[in-house]
Structures are given as C-alpha cells and as structure tokens.
Amino acid sequence: MYYVAHRLFAAHDRALAARLAQRIADKTGPENVFLPFCDTNEEALVAKVKGRHLFKLDVERLGRLTSMVAVLHGPSLDDGVCMEMGYAYALGVPVIVMTSDFQTYSLTATGPRFDFPDPLVQAASTGVIRVARLAGQPTVDTPKTRFEIFADRNENQVDRALDAAVEGLLAPSAQRPATASLRDRTEQCAFMELSPYLAGQGDLAALAHDAGYAVRVPDRFIASDPVTAARHDLAEALASDILVADVSGPETPPRAALLIGTAAARGIRIAAYHPRPTFTHADGREPNWRNLMIQYAAAHLTHAAALDDWLRS
C-alpha cells in the first residue's frame, strides 16, 4: 500500500495530492494507493464521532502500508503529515518527501543547511525530492501574458516534482530506514520535546524527574551536525518509556507532531501538553484541539498538575 500524506484543508493541496496519487496508481494499480480525505470519503462521511472515526481509518492504513510519499512545503509544515511521517518511520516504512520549496534552512547564518526548518523531518525521511527552481519558459505557438507564462512555469515545476517523487518512491534504492531498536534500560526514561514558543519549560522536565524518570531532551538544536543529532533524538525517543510533547503555539509544532507519530506507532505513552488549547472546526466533525491525528494518539493535558498526575499514573 502506497500512502500519500498531504495537507487536507485547502483545495489546491488536495488536488496536488490527487495528481500524485494518480501517477502512483498508473504505475502500481489504483488498489495499491491510499489517499486520505478521498479514500476515507471525509466530506460525505457521517459518524457519531467523526474525527475519532477518521483517526481509526488512517491508523489502520498506516499500519499496513509499504511506502509513503509526504508532500511538505514552506517553513510551516503540516502537523498531520509530520505525525503520519513519524508513524511510518517508527514502523520501518520508507518515506519519500516531495517539496518545491526554494528555501533551505540552518540553525545559524553560516551553519549546515537542511531541507526543512527542523532537521528531524529530514532525519525521518528515506529521501527528499527537491524541485526548487521554476521550469524554463515553455515554447508556445499562441501569445501568452506574462502571468500565463509564469503560471505555466510553476505548473511545469510541479509536474517535474511529481514525476521525481514517483520515481523515487518506486526506485529499488528506496530502502527501509534504519530505525532505532528499543534498548534495555534499568531506568524509566521520558523524552521531553518542549515547545519553541514558550519559555520556562524546565518545570516540565523537573516534573518528570520528580516522578522517577530519567529525562532525555533533544540534542539537534545545539549540535554541529543537526541531521545526525536528529537521528539520535529519534533513537532516544523510541527508546523511552514515555513521550512528553508540548504542543503549544499557533499550531502543533511539526517536530512534536512527528515524534507523537513515532511514539504512537510503537505503543509508547504520550502526553500532549497544551496549556492554552485552540480548536479546529469542520462540518460534521467534533471540535478538535488542533489535528485529530494528534488528538486521539495522545493524552491531552492542559496544566502542570494534570501532567504530574499523568506521569505518576
């Protein structure tokens, strides 16, 4: 099963994912491709608790896929796609990421560059397909305005990205990632993925320590090689007994979403700490605090006392 992970909430994103799914289906057969929203019939689906039902449908597909292609663009990455990427990574499933973002990123002005704002995303992928530059001006027989020409160049860029993504997904070299094995530890370990938006979060780590956990925190933001350090962070998270991910901010941080996916796939207990909840709304669906994939994969805790109780339970 080939799984196309994509941003769901804008028509152009869904259309792009459908074009990608069709290209994969042309090569492998339509029965071998799963396209969220389309194949869960989300718009027409009626369920008592629609968000939870959609979560179960997606997790069932995630549990039996053979490969994933994830569409990610721009500095603000979709939390649902990142969660699905993490889930696939933890199961040892190859993940090809497609982007037409022309930016690269670094933690310092002159530091090593990587493809996404957080090197964790690159570390969890089998390969990244980047088509960052516009295609050349097409040859046309009829006159076109500069806006039509610009639109054509962007469409051609997207077509090149889609073709390259399918080629990368189906290539024999698209091997399963080397995921971490759970290590034997005599101590109970907690991996703490804290928010980039809030200060003073040492208190959360202190709660975990006081509850008897050895606390592990990310290294990638201070490392000279952020991508290698990100792989180590993934290994630490997968070797821990619990994950505490602060999902505060204007959206769930993509890095927290990805780690929630890895922990969910391995059955690791997850706390999503969210002291100032915000909600999303869609027709026929219960209000979700952010992304439904994260809502139903984790315990939702809104204050430190609740986190303390959860850590000691």
Rank of each mutant, 00 (worst) to 15 (best):
G261A: 05
I222K: 08
G261D: 10
A223H: 01
P226V: 10
A263Y: 01
P226N: 09
Y213A: 05
I242P: 01
P250M: 02
A265G: 11
P277Q: 05
I270P: 14
Y273R: 02
V215F: 10
A263G: 05
V247Q: 05
I270S: 03
E251D: 10
A223T: 01
V217K: 08
A239H: 06
A229R: 00
P226M: 11
L259I: 06
H274P: 04
R216K: 12
A257H: 05
D210F: 01
A264E: 03
T280R: 11
A272F: 01
A229I: 04
H274W: 15
V247I: 15
L238N: 14
T252N: 06
R216E: 14
R266M: 11
V247L: 11
G212A: 06
I222T: 14
R276S: 14
V247P: 09
A211N: 10
R255C: 12
I222D: 11
D246M: 03
V217S: 14
L243G: 02
R276C: 11
A257S: 13
A235Q: 11
P253Q: 08
D241V: 00
I222H: 13
L238I: 01
A272I: 05
H209R: 13
I268W: 02
D246N: 15
I270H: 03
P277T: 11
L259T: 02
R231H: 15
T252E: 06
H209C: 10
A214D: 08
V215Q: 06
L234P: 04
A265P: 09
L259E: 02
P275R: 07
D241W: 00
P275M: 12
T280Q: 07
A211T: 04
A256I: 02
G261I: 05
E251I: 03
G267W: 10
A229L: 03
L238W: 00
G267Y: 09
A229S: 11
D246Q: 08
R220H: 14
H274K: 07
I260M: 14
A230R: 01
A223K: 00
P226G: 12
L238Y: 02
I260G: 03
G249W: 01
G267D: 11
A257L: 08
I260K: 01
E236A: 14
P277L: 09
G267P: 09
F279I: 00
A272N: 12
G261M: 04
D246F: 02
A239T: 14
V247N: 05
P253L: 13
A256P: 03
R276M: 13
L243M: 07
Y273S: 05
I270A: 05
A257D: 04
S224D: 10
P254M: 04
D210C: 00
A256T: 03
P226T: 11
Y213L: 09
A214L: 14
F279W: 15
S224K: 07
V217N: 02
A265T: 10
T262E: 08
E251F: 06
P254F: 01
R216Y: 08
A272V: 10
S224H: 06
D246W: 01
R276E: 15
L243W: 00
P275L: 07
L238P: 03
I268A: 04
A256W: 02
A263Q: 01
R216T: 05
F221P: 02
V247Y: 00
G212M: 07
D246R: 02
P218F: 06
